[in-house]
């Protein structure tokens, strides 16, 4: 049976995988965006689980909002990525050192 604790664990690990995906990958920006999507997903899951558990509709409302935000965010992110690729003709993260201190 899927208890509250299990749901917590799933969403947490999903979130952690997203986090690790951001800073362990050195190669591609697309993976970062995907990891970001995964983090959004885990957060949405979490909201939904809590909404069910606490019997409160606000969590599901938030999940819907996050869905929209994630969609727009990923579209803007992909748009930036496309522009970036057009200029640099590479999307390797290791080479993105223009903001060096």
């Amino acid at each position: 049976m899927i208890t509250q604790l299990y749901c917590e664990n799933y969403t947490f690990f999903l979130f952690m995988i997203g986090v690790l995906g951001i800073f362990l990958n050195q190669k591609s920006i697309i993976i970062i965006i995907m990891s970001l999507e995964m983090m959004f997903l885990s957060v949405s899951f979490n909201f939904i689980f809590f909404s069910v558990y606490l019997d409160n509709i606000v969590g599901q409302l938030f999940a819907l909002a996050i869905l929209t935000v994630a969609a727009s965010e990923s579209s803007i992110g992909l748009a930036i990525l496309v522009i970036y690729y057009r200029i640099r003709s590479t999307i390797t993260i290791e080479l993105m050192t223009l903001t060096k201190g």
């Binding site: 951001i22 800073f23 990958n25 993260i93 993105m96 903001t99 201190g101």
Partner: peptide
């Protein structure tokens, strides 16, 4: 020394943030 921490690598930034 602190400036040297800012490598420009996004992954490093993320690591420090988290």
């Amino acid at each position: 020394n602190i400036i040297k921490i800012q490598t420009g690598q996004i992954t490093h930034y993320t690591f420090f943030v988290i």
